[in-house]
């Protein structure tokens, strides 16, 4: 597979020059919570008793939040980004073979290099390899359903898997999750930590999903839907989907910080 970062689907992501000067010690851009789901979203019933009701206390980016854990290739194994092979026992997993790829960038469009991306999903039948999942679709003996990758110098990542299936869950009497892949991303500071889900272009369950529709902003919701990327597919092998992830941008330090005591 070509590890060269291809062009991004959102033209703004291809901006040649960073918008801000090189990284300083600055905190992160204020999180725009209007594009995130609110903590209390009654249509997603599990959120009702698990959502804080007091106002969040604002911190302007202390050293505790602009720093975060650093990971390296020593943390990963050679098959960690190949979900077709990383749990194969006596053959390949059942399902549509796909590659998922994209870039992790920040809000200025700058690539986030060497950051850990983790992903997990149900198998092609919509069943998770998890002791708490009791859905009647069968476990696939050759599919674990998780993997991880480090982005390269440009923020690019990729992995191979099979397309997950939709599955029913207890929210309304007849609620089904659209096919999705869970993503966990770190960034360079703990304030950028993010978990999200990627969906697939054209899935009719998307507009009626009680979890996806917790997102109040239509454009923000659409950005979680990965398009088919035929150019990145491999003929007679696998289709490809493109999923770019944007983490919070970091303020620059234009001038020296005040010294202690000032």
């Amino acid at each position: 597979m070509n590890a060269q970062a291809p062009a991004l689907r959102d033209a703004r992501l291809n901006r040649p020059e960073p918008l801000t000067p090189p990284l300083g010690d600055g905190g992160f851009f204020q999180r725009d919570r209007s594009i995130h789901p609110p903590a209390h979203a009654p249509g997603y019933k599990s959120s009702v008793l698990r959502s804080p009701r007091q106002a969040l206390l604002s911190l302007e980016g202390s050293i505790s939040e602009i720093t975060g854990p650093v990971f390296g290739h020593n943390d990963l194994g050679p098959l960690d980004n190949d979900l077709i092979r990383n749990y194969a026992k006596d053959g390949d997993p059942i399902g549509e073979r796909i590659v998922v790829h994209g870039r992790v960038v920040d809000e200025t469009g700058r690539g986030v290099p060497n950051t850990l991306v983790e992903f997990w999903q149900a198998n092609a039948g919509g069943r998770y390899r998890h002791k708490k999942d009791t859905y009647l679709a069968p476990i696939d003996p050759n599919f674990g359903g998780c993997g991880r990758a480090l982005t390269d110098d440009t923020g690019y990542y990729y992995f191979r898997t099979v397309k997950p299936g939709p599955y029913p869950w207890r929210n309304y009497v007849n609620s089904w999750r659209p096919a999705h892949i869970h993503f966990s991303v770190f960034g360079s500071g703990f304030a950028q930590r993010l978990i999200t889900q990627m969906y697939f272009e054209g899935d009719p369950l998307i507009p009626i999903c009680p979890i996806l529709t917790t997102i109040p902003d239509k454009d923000a919701l659409d950005r979680l839907v990965a398009p088919l990327d035929l150019n990145a597919s491999t003929p007679f092998d696998s289709l490809a989907y493109r999923f770019d992830i944007v983490l919070r941008g970091q303020r620059s330090t234009y001038f020296e910080n005040r010294t202690a005591g000032n």
Binding site: R12, V105, D217, L247
Partner: peptide, 12 residues
């Protein structure tokens, strides 16, 4: 032309 942060979703 700033980008928007990717929306969060539950870890499930």
């Amino acid at each position: 032309n700033y980008l928007k942060e990717t929306a969060s979703q539950t870890a499930g």
